[in-house]
Write a protein that binds this DNA or RNA. Structure first.
Lengths: 362, 362
DNA sequence: CCCACTTGTGACATCGATGTCATGACACCG
DNA sequence: CGGTGTCATGACATCGATGTCACAAGTGGG
């Protein structure tokens, strides 16, 4: 591959002049510029980033570590592709800065992370982002102080900058909307309690009920480890079956995510219950491949992975520029409720109660 | 960030000696080595890749261009995540070489590809891989001869090395298995004919029928543009409805992909037809989030994206090392049939006919 | 005891782009 | 016409790691 020296020789000028043409530095004569440009074209010259970085002491590279790409094969609690959307968002958030994003994949093995960080450091990245596949606590090896780090979809106990989904508020928004539609007996089929989402969302559920002044029935709340290949479906069936036998059975099942909702559709069908006429189903994530394809389409709340990515990118840029280094609070992000055919409106949509929830008390 | 010069000064040796410790080049005295290693630890030294590359004239980087990360938002014909699995496979295929994989995303805009290629070239990548989101023809801007390029899930008319799914054979394998299970009236709901998969798979279907010596009924073959948000579901309904009214209606519906199968499940349910007892359904892709979660689980054929990635990585390594540069034929990859509950065995599984298809003729 | 050899180490040049400083050719002002 | 700028260009040093060569000290064989 050719260098500025080759270009310079062909154009009959000095390397420095070529550099000036490349960077629009100092002044260059019209004819000289043309000669240089022609030489560059003829040689197919492409500037070497290595040499450039070395001089400039700036790489213009942001390192992104994720398991997004590898982990999609094992059945996992979130078989969606949240981290992928986060990565996409990060790219969008970083785009205006002109930084190149280098993505490294853990290959699903957490123990590769230190090595990946080292690789990135050896490329002198100007910042690092770590993306987790679901909302969780993590513990990364230490990173040099002068290389800013942002955690996306995860947090640690060292106060590292983090961008997180506002699970609590999202669940509250969804339940509030269900209450607004006239539902009172709302079942919550949560994810495992050892997951952040499994703990935070029930809180949001309670928030919405408290706000509406409605009582909570603990029999309608359960954690279901639904994606265990053997026991999962059975467990889900039993849980739903139990809830439906209660004297005042639920009119809606709120699922821990859209994939659970897909499974619930199958179970309800086997039970002979019609969705949404006999019972409503709501999801979580707005995993469109499922939510929009199901019949009836799934009411769900959007976990705004994309927006989270954008925020993470922006926050990193801030840190790189030296701002906000002392801000240790996580950035919380929420998304809209998507109201589709899987839940009936027990009362007309535009009732006043939507705006003043207290009205629902009667 | 510190350099070998800093390390050398702290350890009281020359930079060259530090380099020797780093690379296990020439001999280094025991005590000297220890002093250097301690100095490196104390300074948190990380070797600069830029400087190293410059000297070595080798980057150890493979550039990967894909839309995998950005395009997952728009509803697309393949809402699965094929390209992602390909990327994952590529990483696995390249792992043994120790190359660093740099992933760049087109952001869904094809016009960004030339710029991405330039960025990669400026990083002096040793090879490039382009991954398309579905089997298709592409036309990339020219790449310098000394930088090998491999196309994954796509091909061009310049004879660039390519790795492709063997759609024809996969469809044939699936249909052969269905015939083996005793099915004779097999409907094929193909993808759009302007897609490679939409053209190749019907050929495979015909192959299997021809092999078994069975006649083809053109009324059972259709292309369905099922994922148009408005017209798609209706079109699919009408097509199925028409086929079911034929004098000898199909006993299995072969869908263009697993997502279409998901939609077909909903349609058959609405029509009051039970799967698999009254009619079977088969998919394509083995998109596990759907195939394994559906009830009954979906019989489908695996489009081995992961394996394609591995092959693409391996083929690139070959080209990088200078071998096989004249081989212009595409590498075809196929995967297994996954037999699940969505299709009944009309006859016992182990009949001789499976091994000698001709026996089926009666 | 000397020479050939190994071991351990450092001086210096090099990779390609670019920042700093110097130089020559004009132009313009008083 | 001399002095002060501006324009266009080049020589040279620099970034950090490493290849080449040199060199001193020790080692062993004849």
């Amino acid at each position: 591959m050719s260098t500025i020296y080759d270009v310079a020789r062909l154009a009959g000028v000095s390397p420095k002049t070529v550099s000036r043409v490349l960077n629009a530095d100092g002044p260059v004569g019209e004819k000289t510029r043309e000669a240089v440009e022609r030489a560059m074209r003829d040689l197919g010259y492409v500037r070497s980033n290595a040499a450039r970085m070395m001089r400039a002491q700036k790489s213009g590279i942001i390192g992104l570590i994720t398991g997004a790409i590898s982990t999609k094969n094992q059945p996992s609690t979130q078989q969606g592709l949240p981290d992928l959307h986060i990565v996409q968002g990060i790219q969008r958030g970083l785009e205006p800065s002109g930084m190149t994003v280098m993505i490294a994949d853990t290959g699903g093995r957490q123990d590769k992370v230190p090595h990946l960080i080292d690789t990135f450091l050896s490329h002198r990245v100007e910042g690092l982002i770590y993306v987790a596949e679901y909302h969780q606590a993590v513990s990364l090896p230490p990173v040099p102080e002068d290389t800013p780090l942002v955690l996306a979809n995860c947090f640690d106990d060292r106060g590292t900058a983090a961008v997180l989904p506002d699970d609590r508020r999202l669940q509250a928004d969804l339940v509030r909307r269900l209450i607004g539609a006239g539902h009172r007996r709302i079942a919550l089929l949560s994810l495992r309690a050892d997951m952040a989402a499994g703990r935070l969302r029930p809180l949001g559920y309670r928030d919405a009920f408290a706000e509406a002044g409605l009582p909570i029935d603990a029999r309608l709340m359960a954690h279901v480890d639904f994606d265990q290949p053997e026991t999962g479906p059975q467990l889900l069936w039993d849980t739903i079956d139990r809830m439906l036998r209660i004297d005042a059975p639920p009119t809606v099942l709120c699922c821990g995510n859209d994939q659970m909702a897909l499974m619930v559709y199958g179970i309800l069908r086997s039970m002979g219950r019609k969705v949404p006429d006999e019972i409503g189903v709501a999801g979580f994530d707005n995993y469109r491949a499922i939510a929009e394809t199901l019949y009836p389409p799934l009411t769900t709340v959007e976990l705004p992975y994309n927006a989270m990515g954008v925020r993470a990118g922006e926050r990193l840029l801030q840190l790189v520029s030296g701002e906000g280094r002392e801000d240790r609070s996580p950035t919380l992000v929420a998304g809209p409720v998507h109201w589709r055919g899987s839940v009936t409106e027990l009362r007309p949509k535009n009732v006043v109660s939507l705006k003043t929830p207290r009205e629902d008390l009667q």
